[in-house]
Structures are given as structure tokens and as C-alpha cells.
Amino acid sequence: MYEIYLTLRSVTVAQRARDVCNRVGIRCVMQRSPRALATNGCAYALRLRLADARQAQMMLEREGIPVKGIYQKKPSGEFVPWAP
């Protein structure tokens, strides 16, 4: 289940982030960011597994890809900020 959401500021940044994750074998899905997470309006999100969250965060930081926020979607549907 892809319960981690990395929010990114634009579709281009999200596509780059996706490519970085895919390159290291992290499976992820790119989609429009849930409205609840889109501070400042429209944004994009990468969804991935909880187990991959730390590695993804490190890889994106290394590549200089700005991540707006990282959230975990709870079974209740609520989004809570995620930290390693």
C-alpha cells in the first residue's frame, strides 16, 4: 500500500523525482496532490511505501529535488506529517 505522500511543487519536479526513485528501484505513483496537502494550491505528489520513504527522501535531497512535505495517510484517511 502506497501510504506515503511526498508533495512537490510542480509536475516537472514530480516527474524528475519519480525518475530518481525509479532509478534506485523505489516504486512510486505520481498523481495530483490531495487538496488537503496542497498548500498554496495545486501540486503533485509521489506515493510510495512506508518502507521506501527514508531512502526516497535521501535520494531526492541528494539530487537537489525540493520536496514540499512528506505525509502518511492513516487508515482513517487522515494525513499526518511523516518524519524518519
Partner: peptide, 15 residues
């Protein structure tokens, strides 16, 4: 298609 709540153009490229 990005940061649409803001009334300023995004401060990043290419947007």
C-alpha cells in the same frame, strides 16, 4: 497548474 492559490507566478522554472 501549480501553486494556484498564490496570485504570483511561481518563482521556479519552467512554470
Amino acid at each position: 497548474g501549480s501553486m494556484s492559490e498564490s496570485q504570483r507566478m511561481p518563482d521556479f522554472l519552467p512554470d
